[in-house]
Nucleic acid binder design. Structure first.
Lengths: 177, 177
DNA sequence: CTAGTATGAATGAAGG
DNA sequence: CCTTCATTCATACTAG
């Protein structure tokens, strides 16, 4: 389903998403490349469920190498993936109450992660994810969602973090490379 | 991949399965029987558009009598049916903006058959589906909202398609986390 | 067999 | 977090 195990691969040609393909730069919706999906899935399986803003930024920066991507894409991806994983699990539970999952030995590593996650649902991301410790936690002050996601059209704006993000930091995104 | 994990709608010997066509029903994806479609359509025509989880489960249980079915099949069925009806309607509206909206474009024999069986189906299914009234109290668990993405560098990603960009082995698996 | 269509399944994007 | 909508992909089915 979620895994492209062999043949569910959308016809994403190699490293290019057709969405913005040649004809008319249609900024439709994000069409993740297989590499992007792979990385995101890896992160998810490693336990990351709700990445912080910083983490989203970093992941997005990383994935931008493989193709066009925005932070919101990463955000939505995790939201959706998490929700659907849970939903799927719930449905399976009711559909097959007396039948156990076949425990695919290796192909469904997802189930393991899933189970692991379910055990301690509340809030337990094994956060080894602190990129840089001195992190300036950005106060989650509620700024309304007004321009939450900026226009789809790619903007040239380099960093707008100056407005609120004041952590001096080695803010070179690729510090972890 | 629980999708393909072994549910086949194989035409059993008993063969109440007169599913639309019935030729070579294969595994891999749910293929509703005519009875199932009938019930679903009936519910849809009764006004049910987006059944709740409980309703989905009930419907699924009922329909499982006619053949293999999972909750998600019901879920998807309603999603698709609703979406496509809307889509159809909109298309008609676009195609004939100045024209009266006559009968639906039942270009497919499938729809005709559907209507036919709804109208003059001799065999009435004796199921007793009660699914409308249900409480749905949801937990007031609400977290703070603290996501506000800055405009991230939106790369144009306009590499030439011809040459596959070679990956500098940006191996970020989990190393950077 | 091939083309076209109907439709199950998946998922990005929002709204609330 | 949950639900819903829109769009797309993959496949079953049908006609020619």
């Amino acid at each position: 389903m979620d895994e492209v195990s062999g043949f569910c691969i959308k016809q994403l040609g190699g490293g290019n998403n057709g969405s913005s393909g040649g004809t008319g730069t249609k900024c439709g919706r994000w069409n993740p490349t297989t590499e992007q999906v792979k990385v995101l899935t890896d992160l998810f399986r490693s336990g990351l469920r709700t990445p912080s803003t910083d983490q989203i930024q970093k992941i997005s920066s990383q994935l931008s190498f493989y193709g066009k991507i925005e932070s919101k894409n990463v955000f939505y991806w995790f939201q959706n993936h998490k929700a659907r994983e849970r939903q799927k699990r719930r449905r399976v539970l009711v559909d097959e109450p007396n039948e156990f999952h076949h425990q695919e030995k290796l192909s469904s590593t997802k189930y393991l992660a899933e189970l692991n996650q379910v055990n301690s649902e509340a809030e337990r991301v094994p956060e080894t994810l602190q990129l840089f410790p001195l992190n300036s936690f950005r106060e989650p002050m509620e700024s309304e969602k007004r321009r939450l996601f900026a226009n789809d059209s790619c903007k040239e704006n380099s960093y707008s973090i100056g407005t609120e993000m004041d952590h001096p930091t080695l803010d070179l995104r690729l510090s972890f490379l």
